[in-house]
Amino acid sequence: MAADSSKIPAWPAWRQLANGDPVGLGASAFSPRSRALKARINEADRAVGSVCPYCGVGCGQQVYVKDGKILDIEGDYDSPISRGCLCPKGAATMQLVTGTHRVKTVLYRRPYGTRWEEIPLERALDLVARRVQKTRDDTWEDQHEKGHPLRRTLGIASLGGATLDNEENYLIKKLFSSLGVVQVENQARI
C-alpha cells in the first residue's frame, strides 16, 4: 500500500532531505509540537530588574511577571557582573519566593506553650511594641555609677541584617539606637 502522500512531508527522513539537512541536526529536527513551544517568559507582562538574594556577588536577575504572579526568574544578560549567569541557588530563586514552604501568617507561641497559634499581624505588632516598651523601661541604664551617660538597655538585642536591604538596615539601626538598644549584630561577625 502506498504511503499517504499527505503525510510524507511530516516524515523526518523526507524533511531532512527536502531541507538539505541530511543528518537531522537543523530545523528539520523540530516537530510541529516543539516548533509551537514557547518560553514561559514570553507570556510575561513585564520583566522587573532585580538582584540575586543569596551570596555577595550580586548577580543580576530579571523577574518575569504576569497578572501579579511571577512566571520565572532568570539571570540578567546585561549585568557586567554575572553576564546572565546564575548558580544553582540563584537559579532556584523562583522556588524560594513562590514555594509552598512560605508561611503567610504570624505565628505565636505563648510562654510554656506546646504549639504555634496564628494571630493577626496588627495584634502581633502591638504585642511586640509593648514588650519592647516594658523590657526597655525595666532594664534602662541612664548613667554609670561614676556619672557618665549610658542611656541604653542591655535587656534587648537584635541579630540579622546581611540578607536585608540597606534601607532596612538603616531603619533598624536608627530605631534601635534611639531606643537605646546597643546589642545590634548581624552575620558580618559570624
Partner: peptide, 18 residues
C-alpha cells in the same frame, strides 16, 4: 573579601553592628 550574603557589605556600611 568574598562575602556570603546579598547585602552583608551593606549591613557593615550601614551597620547592624554594635
Amino acid at each position: 573579601a568574598l562575602r556570603g550574603h546579598s547585602s552583608i557589605q551593606g549591613s557593615t556600611d550601614i551597620p547592624t553592628l554594635y
